[in-house]
């Protein structure tokens, strides 16, 4: 895998160079910026591109459309929050446990659904997020509809709670990089090729001898772990966990990934880099008045993109590059 990565780095020199510059900029940005608001916006971009990536692995790569990705975010966030607030367990340990529990939950959903066609999986995820929302809202042990509020006395790395945004910023950046590393690993190993085959045609994949349910499950494990990790971060960042903030993220997660480009590494980053700043600045500017209008616009964009360019902005970029290359190649010959 290492050599392959090296080769792909050589062949995409400019792209990797750009990534490096961006990363260095991202690392040094908080040092030269004292204003908390841009930090907030950028860390939300990081968080949502990690969450988008978790959806992308399951839905973009393996083609198993999850319409309730936030159920995994919610379980991860709730496990660490309950352990932290009720039992004083460090959120970092809670995060690991949350990831494991969410993976087990994902396994339970995937086991029956992955034998069936993709649409049954989509319906099941839609049903599960509803069940989870109702159960959590009614379950007093996890705070019910009010949610869990963190005591604001413990600060620092052990408690995953900070007064400054810069620490959250670096954690979110790290999480996004972890998510990208997972995708890179999948793309460069045989798993990626298997998943793409499964997405394009499950019957063909089966005929080629790919253990289809097993590879769907592998993508499920990656996806749930990343989503749960993001859930813990989000709860720690907000300093509370309630059903509305943790179980209602499915649509934005899906939307930004579709917009950026499903089935590609940087699709979620492009999508969240575009949508999250618009959303955050719009919220400050209109304080909720534009809510319906921007949702209206988002819904239109999803349908529009899916119909015209299913691979999102990445797809548009690729087709432009293809055309450019063709025109360059044809000129000297002609």
């Amino acid at each position: 895998m290492g050599t392959e990565l090296l080769e792909s780095m050589k062949s995409h020199k400019i792209a990797w160079g750009l990534c490096f510059v961006l990363l260095v900029t991202a690392i040094f940005f908080p040092r030269y910026n004292a204003d908390p608001f841009p930090l907030h916006v950028i860390l939300m971009v990081f968080l949502f591109s990690a969450l988008g990536t978790s959806w992308n692995i399951l839905s973009g790569y393996a083609g198993q459309i999850s319409l309730g990705q936030s159920v995994f975010v919610g379980i991860g966030g709730y496990v660490s929050s309950v352990l932290y607030v009720s039992y004083g367990v460090s959120p970092w340990i809670g995060m690991i446990l949350g990831m494991l529990i969410t993976m087990a939950f994902g396994w339970m959903i995937g086991k029956p659904c992955f034998r069936l066609g993709g649409r049954y999986f989509a319906i099941a995820t839609m049903a599960i997020v509803q069940i989870a929302y109702i159960v959590v809202s009614r379950w007093e042990f996890v705070g019910g509809a009010r949610g869990i509020y963190f005591p604001m006395r413990n600060w620092g790395w052990v408690y995953f709670s900070f007064r400054d945004k810069a620490s959250y910023y670096y954690i979110a950046l790290g999480m996004m990089l972890v998510a990208f590393a997972a995708v890179l690993y999948i793309e460069k190993s045989h798993i990626g090729y298997y998943l793409k085959t499964i997405r394009e045609d499950p019957d063909v994949a089966e005929a080629l001898g790919i253990d289809v349910p097993k590879y769907k499950m592998i993508s499920m494990m990656f996806s749930t772990a990343i989503a749960a990790m993001g859930g813990t971060f989000y709860a720690q960042y907000l300093l509370f966990a309630d059903p509305d903030s943790l179980f209602m993220l499915s649509v934005p997660i899906m939307l930004l990934t579709v917009m950026g480009g499903t089935g590609s590494l940087i699709g979620p980053l492009i999508g969240s880099g575009l949508l999250i700043p618009i959303q955050e600045y719009a919220r400050v500017a209109w304080s909720g008045r534009g809510q319906a209008l921007d949702q209206l616009f988002y819904g239109f964009i999803i349908v529009f993109i899916v119909v015209l360019q299913p691979r999102g902005i990445i797809g548009v970029y690729d087709s432009i590059m293809d055309r450019l290359k063709k025109s360059i190649q044809t000129v000297p010959r002609g």
Binding site: R119, Q291, G299, I301, I302, V303
Partner: peptide, 21 residues
């Protein structure tokens, strides 16, 4: 693809609900 079909009608959900709103 199934992804395309599912997202297309799901996008309509977002669109129709916010249109009504």
């Amino acid at each position: 693809e199934l992804v395309q079909q599912t997202l297309c009608t799901f996008g309509m959900v977002v669109f129709l609900q916010s249109l009504a709103q």
